[in-house]
Amino acid sequence: MTVIGIPFIWLLLFLVFPFAIVFKISFAEMAIARPPFTELFAYAEEKLSVMLNVGNYLFLFKDKLYLSAYLSSLKMAAGATFLALLVGYPLAYGIARAHPGIRNLLLLGIVLPYWTSFLLRIYAWIGILKTNGLINNLLLKLGIIDTPLHMLHTDFAVYVGIVYAYLPFMVLPLYTNLVKLDESYLEAAADLGAKPWKTFLFVTLPLSKGGIIAGSMLVFIPAVGEFVIPALLGGPDTLMIGKVLWEEFFNNRDWPVASAVAIAMLLLLIIPMMWFHKHQTQEMVES
């Protein structure tokens, strides 16, 4: 019983309960106090009064900043996920079809960067994309461009950063899926007269659906709420909701609005999260 009890209570206390508190505080009002918000419940003169401030949520709708930040987060996360899929699928496929002896080595090569610091890997791109950075220096020297390209602090840099940082999350589930793919299916398709690209389109791709979903969700969901990448590589007009939440909290010290932003973000992500979770359990049942 303690085996269930300890992790259950820990997770309940430090994971589920906090969300309830975020939900509660999203209905509070900002106040000059410690902590900087008002209480929801007040008990005075035998009266329990509940003050629910829906202003934070209305504010999210009224102020164009939030809505466009949500939309642009979704757009950028989706775009980056698609790019990561384009880059990652051939990679995963190539590894899965490599000689079994070097497969693990190749896989290690994909995972290894993930074990080094996320922050430092994003930092590396600053030096590469800067106006006087490596790419510009190279292109200038080769005479391809006359004036340096503006790449750092743009949406482009954010896309590059997300694809770069989350590529292992895309490749790993795809690889796990593709390596299980029985080659005799492909041989059967070829034997029945399908050209390689048709075999890929009608056999390999549908069979790897599970890996595509898992990989895409693993990139998409954290990318929507990403903070470090837009903060370091994005520009002042790069709108991403993670960054907005961070600034609301740390710069404006408006905890109630930050909570409301978090709840809205959670609602936005709950569908892909559930989908991912359902998919994972399904995979586990099947295997």
């Binding site: 903070f227 978090a262 979770h277």
Partner: peptide, 25 residues
């Protein structure tokens, strides 16, 4: 329980961080 286990894997860190802080406060 299964949901609680998977949640931190996919939850945006800003949300986890904010909720933890509000809990402690």
């Amino acid at each position: 329980f299964a949901g609680m286990i998977t949640a931190p894997l996919v939850m945006p860190e800003v949300i986890t961080g904010l909720s933890m802080l509000l809990l402690f406060v």
